[in-house]
Amino acid sequence: MNHDAVLEQKKIMESEWGGGKAPFGVSWRKYMMWIFIVSDAFTFGAFLAAYGLFRVTSAGWPDTYEVFTAFPFIGVEAPMLFVAMMTFILICSSFTMALAVSASYKNDRTKALKFLGLTILGGSIFILCQVYEWYHIIHDGATMTSNPWGVPLFSATFFMITGFHGLHVLSGLILLTITALKVKRGFYERRGSYEGVEIVGLYWHFVDLVWVFVFTFFYLL
């Protein structure tokens, strides 16, 4: 056998892509979550692209600063303040999630649990806020087929996009709760890897990320 072939085989056996190794340096579980996120981003991307087409083709798209003015308990109109607060809450929950991952990698179960709890709390508040906002604009007369401010597609796309995002938040909360229970029962400690927490974390950050773009394109632009 040719000496070069032996050398090449040696090189292959040592390389990251030579088989028997994780070429990206991450386990398949984590990579699976990553590519799921890419796939999900395409769904949201398609929704937002469709929204963009409606937005530029319809005459008389309502001004969101005049629609989203409600804020509970203060009694004055505060355009966009409530949504900004929702964004703030979701970003904070993303922050506590990152801390939970960090704590779990240091094998600090109590701290990980505490931060997971805070994340779940943040997510739940976000959902409640969204319920309030939906309630409010439905109260103002918005439905899937019409709304008092302008073209019907405005409320239809609003309910569709925020609803689909809300479903993601909800499923994220369920996943987080399961993960927190597993942390509490020492599942990850027994397994010797807290990767599960990190994977759920990835999903949660993605939900936050989507909200950043929904907030920007739907509310601010």
Binding site: I37, V38, F42, G45, A46, L48, A49, G52, R55
Partner: peptide, 19 residues
């Protein structure tokens, strides 16, 4: 992870242009 996202941006650009 990042390169495939170009494709969905392409869809958005085409739709906005169509619009």
């Amino acid at each position: 992870i990042l390169l495939p996202l170009i494709l969905i941006v392409a869809l958005a650009v085409a739709l906005l242009y169509e619009g």
